[in-house]
Structures are given as structure tokens and as C-alpha cells.
Design a protein around this nucleic acid. Structure first.
Length: 418
RNA sequence: GUGAUCGUAGCUCAGUUGGUUAGAGCGCUAGGUUGUGGCCCUAGAGGUCGGGGGUUCAAGUCCCCUCGGUCACCCCA
């Protein structure tokens, strides 16, 4: 076997991809109802866009980016997350606000893969730019929840937090830093080195040592300025009015530095401990400005397609089955009727598969059977002489001879009886 | 980046303390008399035992390296 998919990637083949189609279509339908339009942007960008977007302390940009120089000497990176590109496009085209959009994108992260973790995974997401109101935060979270509901994915928890803004976060950071310095000796190896880069990241650390320190650390939601506190309260109220349960977690710090105020994550207990997130997002009111655009608030989320499919399969939640083909055409004459018939049937919305083989009747019928089609049309010399073909209901025995110009009608009759 | 574990046909796996031409089930292909699928029967194709090196008279079986899969840590979807 000479070539294989690169380490940490996989092919999604038709036997599996029909589930993807359903997931994507459901997502699209839900966000379209809220006025979100699709954005398709390049999968690679100037590497600095992601670095400045996600931030220098983010692991994703610090050590997991697929970076390379192109032939023109430009430093390029494969997209590790969806938001930065949307914001870049928003700025580049000076789009009118509010800008509501959704996307479907692969995301690349150079890391060792394991369960529910790939070097290329796929995210569905939305972003809203230029709208600052708790109702937008509530809408965005509600859309994600509605999407999960549409998949009957009930095994999930919504975790929420507020990261504050430029008024209160620096003060909190300072306070936290002081606390951490006084407890520095007990931090884990990683954070004893890096905690000054972004002390907030320590809150998220899963090691025993850091966690015991964090439990005594000042809580961010108790150190919000009055604006942020009021905003957070209104978001929580809005959610509860919709009956959306959210668990407040002041240690929820997401992987990107750009978040302000509302951050949230959807988790499923089906996934193992620390990689239980099936989606997450938050507000980023300074990101547009920091990437060179006008001061514009923003909020969005991303949902991992592989993760939700994994959760669904572990929960035994089935997607709709693949549709059976309506017709399979067996051709014993190698003539042109095959093409004409299949073209005509398809133009009437009847799905039609041709055998594509010039082999024996038995062989082609075996194929027809395997295709799981409802009806088989056999084009044979004997019937053709009289302008007829043979028609079989593959769920029954026997067959009938029908005139070629009445095939469509006869096929529809058989399809109806089901 | 760290640690563990595995790697035999398309798939799931057998392969005795290292010993003759490497097996099974499923799948695939073709047949089972002249043009009728599913069930059944028969036959066939398909493997340099992940790759490279070493030990040995002899290696799928032992050792080393490497690539890949799986899982955990870190971090994330």
C-alpha cells in the first residue's frame, strides 16, 4: 500500500458521509431561519492572522499550527479555527453590520490524534459581527441548542462563564497573577513556566496541583465590572426564559485569547474526561479592532462534526437511513436505450442507477440486488424488438413486460405500493 | 511534545516452545446448461505476514530502528 491518508486524517466515504449531509443540512436550515448566510473563505491565510486572532498564549497557534512558506515566500497557515477568517473577510469587505453568517470548514491542528481528535476535523459555526446585546448571545446559544435538539442529542451540558472586558479583565488578571505568584511553587510543570503569559489559562488546567490552587483563586465572575456583571445577568436570564439550562463555571477559559464577556461550551459525558467538548464559543468584542478593523463587537461558536457524530453513535442515536435507489437498469443489448431511459427517469425525479457492466444477466441482477433498488428494468433483445422492456419489483418475485414509453408510469406504480 | 499498546488477504481474526508451498469466516469475481437477483452449492482471484536492518542452519514468530493504527496526558471540536 503505497499511499495513505496523512497521519491523523481520515476519509469519510459514502457509507458514512450521508450522515454528514444530514447534520449539515439540519444546521443550515436552523441558522437560515435566523438570517445567517453562508460564508466560504480560504482554508489557508496569512499565519499571523491566526496568531494575532487566537493570541500568543493559545496552544493552538503556539504549537499546533500547520505553517509553511509558499513559493512566494509568504508565511501561510492552514486554518486552525473558523473565526479569524470570518473576521478578516468582514474587515476586508467593509461589510455592513450586523453581519450574521455561518460556515462549514475543515480545521487543522498538528497534534497527536486519539479518540475524537484529528489533525483535520470539521466545524460548523456561526458568527455575528456588529451586534452587542444579551439577546444576541442568547440567540447564538439557542441556535446551537436547537441544532443539538434537531439531532435528538440530549446528552449534553451547557457551561457558561463571563470573561469580563477591557475594564475589569486586566484588574482581575492582575489579582489572579498575584495570587498565582504567591502559590507559584505548587503549580504544575507547564504553568510554572508559562503562567505569566496568560494567567487565565491556569484556571483551565486539569492537573491536580493546579486545580487545588485554582479552587482558592479569585473567581472571575465575582470580579466583573458593573457593566459586565449586568450583561452576564441578562444573558443568564434570557437563557432561563427559553428554558435553556446552563451551569456557571468561573474556571471555563476557552483556548483562544480573544474572548470577552460571554463564553460557553457544550459538553457530552459520553466523551472521555478532558476532551468532552462538542462545541463552544463566545463573545469577542475586541477582536475586529485588534485585527485592524473598526471597533466591532462579535460573537460566535463552532461545533465539531466528528465529535457530535461520535457522541450520537455512542448513544445509539441513528440518523435517517440512506435512501434506496428507485430503479436499477440492467442492459443486455449494449445499446443506447440504457442512457435514454436513465436520463428520462432521473429528469422525473426517479433515482436511477445503471449497471455499467456488459456482463451476464445473472451478474447484473446480482448487482441490482446489492444496489438495494426498488425496481429493476431489464433491457433485453426479445422485448426490445417489440418496443418493450422487462420490469421487476425487486422486493417480490416475477416480472412484467411493459412498453418503453410507459416505463415511467409502471415504475411509479411499483414505488407507490410501498 | 510525553507515555502505553498494537500492525498477518478488502474486513474480522487463527497461526502450536522460531521449523516444510501462510489459513478461516465474511466480502469480491465467475459458474450451477439456452435471458432472471436474494437462499444454497462449486470454483477463482487476492498477502514480499507495515517497511528496513540484525540474531539464527531456519523468523509471521526473537532484538533494534522506522512508518502507521489505537488509547491516555497536554490542549482542543
Amino acid at each position: 500500500m503505497k499511499f495513505q491518508a496523512p497521519k491523523g486524517t481520515k476519509d469519510v466515504l459514502p457509507g458514512e458521509s450521508y450522515k454528514w449531509e444530514q447534520v449539515i443540512l439540519k444546521f443550515k436550515n436552523i441558522v437560515s431561519l435566523a438570517g445567517y448566510g453562508l460564508t466560504v473563505s480560504p482554508m489557508f491565510e496569512d499565519a499571523n492572522l491566526f496568531k494575532r486572532g487566537a493570541g500568543e498564549s493559545s496552544d493552538v497557534t503556539r504549537k499546533e499550527m500547520y505553517e509553511f512558506q509558499d513559493k512566494g515566500g509568504r508565511l501561510i497557515a492552514l486554518r486552525p479555527e473558523g473565526t479569524a477568517s470570518i473576521v478578516r473577510a468582514f474587515i476586508e469587505h467593509s461589510l455592513p453590520t450586523p453581519f450574521r453568517t455561518w460556515y462549514l470548514t475543515p480545521a487543522f491542528r498538528y497534534e497527536r490524534h486519539q479518540k475524537a481528535r484529528y489533525r483535520q476535523h470539521h466545524q460548523l459555526g456561526v458568527e455575528v459581527l456588529g451586534a452587542l446585546s444579551p439577546s444576541v448571545d442568547v440567540e447564538v446559544i439557542d441556535l446551537a441548542g436547537t441544532f443539538f435538539d434537531s439531532l435528538v442529542l440530549k446528552d449534553r451540558e451547557l457551561i457558561i462563564n463571563s470573561m469580563g472586558d477591557e475594564n475589569c479583565r486586566p484588574q482581575y488578571k492582575e489579582k489572579l497573577l498575584k495570587y498565582l505568584i504567591s502559590n507559584k511553587a505548587s503549580l504544575c510543570d507547564e504553568h510554572i513556566e508559562h503562567f505569566e503569559l496568560n494567567p487565565l489559562r491556569v484556571l483551565d488546567c486539569k492537573t491536580e496541583s493546579c486545580r487545588s490552587i485554582v479552587s482558592g483563586a479569585p473567581k472571575i465572575d465575582e470580579n466583573l465590572c458593573s457593566d459586565c456583571e449586568a450583561y452576564y445577568g441578562r444573558v443568564l436570564d434570557g437563557l432561563s426564559q427559553l428554558g435553556i439550562k446552563a451551569r456557571k463555571d468561573p474556571t471555563l477559559v476557552r483556548g483562544f485569547d480573544y474572548y470577552t464577556r460571554t463564553t460557553f461550551e457544550f459538553t457530552s459525558h459520553v466523551l472521555s474526561g478532558t476532551q468532552n467538548a462538542i462545541g463552544g464559543g463566545g463573545r469577542y468584542d475586541n477582536l475586529v479592532e485588534s485585527l485592524g478593523g473598526p471597533k466591532t463587537p462579535g460573537i460566535g461558536f463552532g461545533i465539531g462534526i466528528e465529535r457530535i457524530l461520535l457522541v450520537m453513535s455512542e448513544l445509539g442515536l441513528e440518523m435517517d437511513e440512506q435512501k434506496r435507489p428507485d430503479v436499477f437498469i440492467v442492459d443486455l443489448t449494449n445499446g443506447s436505450l440504457n442512457s435514454e431511459l436513465s436520463h428520462k427517469l432521473r429528469s422525473h425525479g426517479i433515482s436511477t442507477i445503471i449497471s455499467g457492466q456488459e456482463t451476464s444477466l445473472k451478474s447484473q441482477l446480482r448487482m441490482a440486488n446489492k444496489s438495494n433498488a426498488r425496481v429493476c428494468i431489464i433491457i433485453g433483445e426479445r422485448e426490445l424488438k417489440d418496443g418493450k422492456v422487462s420490469l421487476k419489483d425487486l422486493d417480490a418475485a416475477g416480472d412484467e413486460i411493459v412498453e418503453i414509453n410507459r416505463v415511467e408510469e409502471s415504475v411509479k406504480n411499483i414505488l407507490k405500493n410501498h
